[in-house]
Design a protein around this nucleic acid. Structure first.
Lengths: 205, 205
DNA sequence: TAGTTTAGGTTATTAAAACTCACTTGATCT
DNA sequence: AGATCAAGTGAGTTTTAATAACCTAAACTA
């Protein structure tokens, strides 16, 4: 009973719930969320439709929880990836690369984040969205650190810089995700960093 | 009859169609598209639901046509706004300002473009989307012109530069649109241009 | 000018999809 | 042994997008 309590927090979720989430993930590989029906989700999960509503408030909540799992996983990785890197610009470069790489290797995750959740008000109030905010904060911290140590100009608002970085990444990936085109982290990172770090104005005379 | 032919192309659309489009525009001021029902649209238009399907293939087609009207209007304006400006960077600056200003003064337009259409495959194949592509081409032309005349570095792909600009603008506006916050073209343009033109790296030694 | 077509619109219905409710079954606690 | 509970089901209800069939008045044609 005591050890039961210990396990209580991380008790493995019931089989049905897992199957439902897996089912949606798999369907999202070929279809957009709006075109996936609850009947379809239940069927490929081998479960009844009603069970979805046992574990999720509604269809979008299911989507949010799927996204959330991805986010939890990737946030941990992101933190580790930045460890041991010296220099704010170097950190930003690494972060951009990892961001591209993550989208590149998990299209479903990219789809959800770039396309499927944005258009619903309640996403921005959701628990899931907090992870995204935490990530955005991380970027802001790096930028501010760079301003303090002199690596980064401090006459552009840090938040604007963050938005430039995120906006760039996401706009680049959006069309690629929509049309199923390849995302190449290496070249994209080089080009985007060149753009963000040095600007487009030709200063070579 | 002959003069009838002349007018045929630009005949004013029937009252019902106009009322339906107005109705959606007005509803979009307070609600997201997904939460607006066809019944609601018809009711505020003072028209029956079936009439919507006389003039539009489906609910999304109505949305696309509303967006299209905005785009037609703004594209003309954009072309004029750039006339008489010397220098590619100056043109880009003006374009960015106008872009911000347009979103700032027409939130419904901004909403549709930033939030409501992206998540549907068929938008990217629609007639409406061609206007957006035309706009994107315009930016690309300016960038390439700048590369030729030496104002803009040519070691970053022009398309990457375009994506940086558009991505920056849209990411900046997205949160503001979602949360109904103000968009201030003047300061945003200054900051974004500084970022894009000169980069964030501190080069003052 | 009588007859026919057409544009603009409506009434009534359908089909599909999201969501609910009342219930079963088997395991666990006391 | 009886109560409680978690996991899951079957059979609905409701909402909403979409259609089909029909009406009416104006415009065209012969």
């Amino acid at each position: 009973m005591n050890e039961n309590n210990l396990q209580k927090r991380k008790k493995t979720p019931p089989a049905g719930k897992l199957k439902i989430m897996d089912s949606l993930r798999s369907l999202l590989e070929t279809k957009e969320f709006g075109a996936i029906t609850t009947a379809e989700i239940a069927k490929t999960a081998g479960v009844t439709e009603a069970l979805i509503y046992k574990y999720f408030n509604d269809k979008r909540d299911l989507l949010h929880q799927v996204l959330r799992e991805y986010l939890e996983e990737y946030m941990v990785r992101f933190g580790l990836d930045l460890k041991g890197i010296k220099g704010s610009l170097n950190k930003l470069r690494k972060l951009i690369w990892v961001h591209f790489h993550t989208y590149s290797s998990n299209r479903v995750f990219a789809r959800i984040l770039l396309i499927e959740v944005r258009n619903h008000q309640d996403y921005y109030a959701s628990e899931t969205h907090k992870f995204v905010k935490k990530y955005a904060d991380m970027i802001l911290d790096i930028v501010e650190e760079g301003m303090e140590n002199g690596e980064i100009r401090s006459d552009i608002p840090a938040k604007m810089i963050r938005q430039g970085i995120l906006g760039g990444i996401e706009h680049i990936c959006l069309t690629r995700v929509v049309f199923g085109r390849e995302i190449e982290p290496d070249v994209l990172t080089d080009d985007l960093c060149e753009l963000i770090f040095s600007g487009i104005a030709n200063r070579g005379k």
